[in-house]
Amino acid sequence: MALKRTSLPRTAEAVALAELRDAIVRGDLPPGAPIRQSAAAEELGLSVIPVREALKTLAGEGIVTYVPQRGYTVTELSPQSVDGIFRIRELLEGEAEANAAARMRPEDIAAMRTALEAQRAAVAGVDVPGTISANRIFHFALLDRCDNEWMLRFIRQLWEALEPHRALAYRRAAAAGDAVRAEAILGEHEGIVAAFEQGDFPLALRLLAEHRTGGRADFHRLLVVDAAPV
């Protein structure tokens, strides 16, 4: 008898985890927003138990924070926390990108180009979730070629920790009609992928490092806005 493996149905916990993560990344649950287990369970059509387990997983990743007697909230990052995350990203991603660049295939570079064009279309359409998704695909088309899976696990966790704040930044920029930084990011991505297409890997790696520096500055501007009186 021949068995053909098909996609398995997701568990209730996996559904809760995916839906909560997506809501945070989309910005529907911004930094500081409380997450009520019973309300989330009712909205998802699940019992409280899988929602609670999903929140524990997100807390372990640093995406949400649990405070006794208060429950879960989407994690808010201080400027010091942002600096800490970017410092670790500099150390890990610089090495991972150098490792990955030596292993890049033409199809990986093509995937970066495709992601860039998707990001360009999302920016033009003021599609914040699409912009965030394309941005991540762009970078991980390279990073996923790194052969150190433990390093990649830590890098992914650092990205997840920043995603709620990235979503908030993009939504604020879109609401203000400010496309300057979005266009600048597209230009930086264009330079990176063009360097890979030309086989100039040292230039691509240098541009990636500069791109991270710009990203850190963007997050600091966001946190200053968050701290300012309304």
Score class of each variant (00 low, 15 high):
Asp83Thr: 15
Gln157Leu: 09
Ala41Leu: 07
Ile185Tyr: 09
Pro30Thr: 00
Ser38Trp: 00
Ala16Asn: 02
Arg113Lys: 13
Leu207Lys: 02
Pro34Phe: 01
Glu61Met: 12
Thr75Gln: 00
Ala169Leu: 13
Asp226Ile: 08
Leu58Met: 07
Val225Phe: 11
Ser78Cys: 07
Leu116Ser: 05
Leu55Ala: 02
Glu107Cys: 13
Gly62Trp: 08
Ile49Trp: 08
Ala179Gln: 15
Gly125Ala: 15
Arg113Gln: 11
Ala141Leu: 04
Phe196Ser: 01
Gly214Gln: 06
Ala175Met: 09
Glu93Gln: 08
Leu208Tyr: 04
Val180Leu: 11
Arg105Trp: 03
Arg212Pro: 04
Ser47Met: 08
Ala217Cys: 05
Leu207Cys: 01
Arg172Glu: 13
Val126Met: 10
Pro79Asn: 07
Thr73Glu: 08
Asp108His: 04
Leu17Cys: 02
His165Glu: 05
Leu158Trp: 06
Phe219Pro: 04
Ala161Tyr: 01
Arg87Gln: 13
Phe201Val: 11
Gly130Gln: 09
Gly84Asp: 05
Ala167Ser: 10
Leu168Glu: 15
Leu3Thr: 12
Glu210Pro: 01
Val123Trp: 05
Trp159Asn: 15
Val180Tyr: 10
Thr114His: 13
Ala209Ser: 02
Met104Ala: 09
Arg153Ser: 13
Gly214Met: 06
Thr75Tyr: 03
Ile109Ala: 08
Glu188Ala: 11
Gln119Arg: 15
Arg221Trp: 10
Ala124Val: 04
Arg103Ile: 03
Arg216Gln: 12
Ala124Glu: 08
Arg103Trp: 00
Gly191Pro: 00
Ala227Met: 11
Pro202Met: 01
Arg171Leu: 14
Ala96Tyr: 00
Thr6Gln: 15
Ala102Asn: 03
Ala161Gln: 15
Ala41Cys: 09
Met104Gly: 03
Ile137Gln: 15
Lys4Asp: 10
Glu61Gly: 10
Arg171Trp: 05
Pro50Tyr: 00
Ser133Arg: 15
Asp218Cys: 14
Gly214Asp: 07
Val193Leu: 01
Ser78Ile: 07
Ala161Glu: 11
Val25Phe: 14
Trp159Thr: 08
Ala121Val: 07
Ala98Cys: 02
Asp226Gly: 13
Lys56Asn: 13
Ala100Ile: 02
Gln37His: 07
Ala227Lys: 09
Leu20Glu: 04
Ala195Gln: 00
Leu77Val: 05
Phe86Gln: 00
Ile49Pro: 09
Asp127Val: 06
Thr73Arg: 12
Thr6Val: 11
Gly45Leu: 03
Ala204Thr: 02
Ala12Lys: 15
Arg89Thr: 13
Glu197Gln: 11
Arg153Thr: 12
Asp83Ala: 15
Glu163Tyr: 09
Leu44Arg: 08
Asp178Ala: 10
Thr65Ser: 14
Gly177Ile: 09
His139Tyr: 06
Ala217Glu: 08
His165Met: 07
Glu90Pro: 04
Leu143His: 03
Pro30Met: 04
Ala175Phe: 00
Pro68Trp: 06
Glu190Arg: 14
Glu95Asp: 11
Ala111Ser: 08
Glu107Gly: 12
Leu203Ala: 06
Arg26Glu: 08
Val67Trp: 00
Glu163Cys: 07
Leu168Asp: 14
Glu95Pro: 05
Leu3Tyr: 10
Ala40Cys: 09
Ala124Phe: 06
Pro129Trp: 08
Glu53Phe: 06
Val64Pro: 01
Glu19Ala: 15
Gly27His: 02
Phe219Leu: 14
Val48Met: 09
Leu92Ala: 09
